[in-house]
Amino acid sequence: MPMKIAIASGKGGTGKTTIAANLAHLFSQQGRKVTYLDCDVEAPNGHIFLKPQLTEHSPATTLIPQIDLGRCIHCGKCGRICQFNALLCLPEKVVTFPEMCHACGACLLVCPAEAITEIPREIGSIDQGMAGSIIFARGLLNIGEVMSPPLIRALKSKAEEGEVTIVDAPPGTSCPVIESIRDCDYVVLVTEPTPFGLNDLELAVEVVRALDLSFGVVVNRAGLNDQPMLDFCTEQNILVLAQLPDDRRVAEAYSRGQLICEALPDFKARFFSLMAAMETAILGRQIKSSERSNP
């Protein structure tokens, strides 16, 4: 059964991309068809580790209104219905603010004179290619653009999914994260055992629970002060998929853009047990849900 796994974290810089890229690589080495989607469109870095040959580049667009002043009867309805201040109705013209527009289509629907059409506006781009046998796709938000969810949506609908699809999500807990993880079968929350790491993990857990997603935690850079983190996971009945030790060699390999499982073979076994734990959890969830639908 194909599975779609999101790698996410409340706090940035916990090792999300490291885990995602290594998982994609190792699943692919097992002979499975893997897709890697870099949904961290504000700061995508998966390409640094997977080194894909990017062969296809396409713009990603969102729709914005275009006003035909010849038809406009200056009723002001479009300006009034827009919740995002993207249209200003003046006595003799309508001014549009494309970067404020959420492409909801309200103005178009409300216009009694059919004076509004929609035109595409570029907000970023999508790059696709192969990294070995991995299908690789990433989104890149244009500088100065405010809204990444439409780009993430476009990226996810465009790329071909594999037997295993790895979604590298952006950090945080708001709209771009939700857009990235909402349709995934499983979420891996990567954290580090520091007060900041724990605080942000608590927020991330609330998010995945609000979305009713199945998830587990990877404690990265473990070793200094793990107990509060582990206590939290026990208390909340959260599965700890793996603890990866804090190791300066990992930081160094990362800084050079190397995959950890290649640069440090002693880490490979840890990743394999992480993968096994994850697959067991996904399988468990699938069995449970099929029980629910066929009682």
Binding site: G12, N45, E145, S148, S174, G257
Partner: peptide, 28 residues
């Protein structure tokens, strides 16, 4: 906040000075 999107733009427009903290990695 991290990134270059909505919250970052909201925090830096019109400020007097931006300090970017980075780390010496390819991603950084």
């Amino acid at each position: 906040s991290p990134g270059i999107g909505c919250p970052v733009i909201a925090s830096l427009t019109g400020a007097d000075l931006v300090l970017a903290v980075t780390e010496p990695s390819m991603s950084g």
